[in-house]
Every structure is written in C-alpha cells, then in structure tokens.
Simulated assay, not measured.
Amino acid sequence: MIKFIRLPLLFVLFLLLYHLPLNAQDNVIVISGQVTDNDSKEPLTGVNVLIKGTVSGTVTDGKGNFTLKTRLKFPFIMVFSMVGFEPREFEVKGTDSNIQVALLTQTMLGKEVVVTASRMEESILKSPVAIEKLDIRAIKDSPAPGFYDALENVKGVQMTTSSLTFKVPNTRGFNIPNNFRFMQLVDGVDMQAATLGVPLGNAIGPTELDIASVEITPGAASALYGMNAINGMANLLTKSPFLYQD
C-alpha cells in the first residue's frame, strides 16, 4: 500500500519539474529593431541598448540591428545611447512591430569634462590650466594608424619617433629621445620606466580598444604632479566597464 502511494506522488512531481522550464521560456519576450543616424539614415554600430531601470542590455551589430530578451511586462522604456549622439528613450508597448530608432548628433562644445587639471571632474572651459582633449570619437575619426600617432595632430604637441613603436611626446621646451621632463599617466598612474625614469610612449600603455580619451596639458603641470611634469603631461583614460560594453 505504501509503495502504491509513493509511485503516483513521484510521477506528479516529475511532471511539475518537467513543465517548469517550459513555462519559464514562455514568459521570455524578444525585442528586436534597428538604430540609424537621423541625418545620414545609415545604421549605427555599437549603440548601447538598455532597458531603463534594469541591467538588461545589448549593443547593435554591424547593420545597426539588435535583439534583446527580457521577462518584464509591458510597457517598459528602452534607452539608446552612443558617444556623439543624444540619448533617446523609446517606450515599448508590445512585440507587434520592429523598433526603428533614429539618433540625433549631439554637439559637445563646452560640455566636455576633464580630470587632469585638478584631479577631479570639471568642465574643460572652467579648467584652471589649458588642456587639449582627444576623445573617443576624435580617435575613431583620426586617419593615424593608432591613437598615440594621432597626438601629433593635437595643438602644442611635438612627437619624436625613436622607433616603430616608441614615440616620445613633448609639449614645452626641450625635446630629446629620453624626455625626462614629460609625465605620462594611465588613469592617474605614472607609467615611467622604473630603471630609465622616462615615459616609454605607448610601448607599455593600453591598446586603442581600451582608450576612452587622452588629455594633454601643453604647459607645465609640476605644481600638481611634481617636477617630472615641468614640460607637460599626458593622461590616458581607459574605458569604464559600466559605460562601455566593448
């Protein structure tokens, strides 16, 4: 009698566990669409697509298409953002149509933020010293083979090429292959060679995929960063994983 009762109970539990994953999959909502440039009508690659108030997100592919899965109930808001474009919010009410979003170009004149001038975020127009900034969009648009080569086109920067991968920047005064008076930082960390006491260009620096911006102080920065920065300094800022997915 006991064995007869246990068998149906085990069979019922097996059926419940078997149907749970099926029910969970039925609740998944698939959202897809395309993001384009409002002016050129061309698809945008690498646009961050995020559901507002959550950590669910994705990025657009080479054709501007995206696909996102979620378990949220309608309606919810999706946020589209990309460097150089104004963020846009789009309310999703159902899955009956393909989402088409066009982003507007954003003008950043006077709104750029720098951290090199006083070691804290501030507007580039309110900076107490002159700073030249090479942001991620300028790096992508530069015809130079690498972002470090693009520094040669920045106002007030002179570059000495000692070898194929060893470039020494200078912004003030003396310029020699071993520029002892120019400081190079990566996210605020000094990148001088331990034995030589000189910056090694980008030989030991981050790659172009990791660079978010480069800030150049063309004048003396020794008051804040010491005597090694008497000829100027370069601060290489890398991408934050909370803002960039690639």
Rank of each mutant, 00 (worst) to 15 (best):
M1C: 01
I2R: 11
K3W: 08
L10N: 01
L15W: 00
L20A: 15
P21S: 13
P21E: 05
L22C: 03
N27A: 13
V28C: 02
V30H: 06
S32M: 08
G33E: 07
K41D: 13
P43N: 10
P43E: 04
L44F: 12
L44S: 12
L44T: 11
T45C: 14
T45A: 12
G46H: 07
G46V: 04
V47E: 04
K52N: 06
G53D: 00
G53I: 06
G57R: 06
T60I: 07
T60S: 08
K63R: 13
N65V: 04
K69M: 11
K73I: 01
K73A: 15
M78T: 00
M78D: 03
E86F: 05
P87L: 11
E91Q: 03
V92H: 05
K93S: 02
G94N: 15
D96G: 13
S97A: 00
M108P: 00
M108E: 09
E112I: 06
V113A: 05
V115R: 03
T116E: 02
A117I: 00
S118K: 13
M120E: 15
M120A: 15
E122I: 11
S123K: 11
I124T: 10
V129K: 07
V129Q: 03
A130T: 14
A130I: 10
I131T: 01
L134H: 03
L134S: 09
D135S: 09
R137C: 01
A138C: 03
A138D: 10
K140L: 12
D141I: 01
P143I: 04
Y148N: 09
Y148E: 13
E152R: 13
V154Q: 06
T160N: 11
T160R: 14
T165N: 13
V168L: 02
P169N: 00
N170Q: 07
T171F: 02
R172D: 04
G173A: 06
N179G: 06
V186D: 03
V189T: 09
D190E: 15
L196M: 11
V198E: 00
L200Q: 14
N202I: 07
G205C: 05
L209M: 09
L209Q: 09
I211Q: 02
S213I: 05
P218T: 08
A220N: 15
Y225N: 07
G226E: 11
A229G: 08
N231K: 01
G232R: 08
M233K: 08
L237Q: 01
K239N: 03
K239H: 01
S240I: 03
P241W: 11
L243R: 14
Q245L: 14
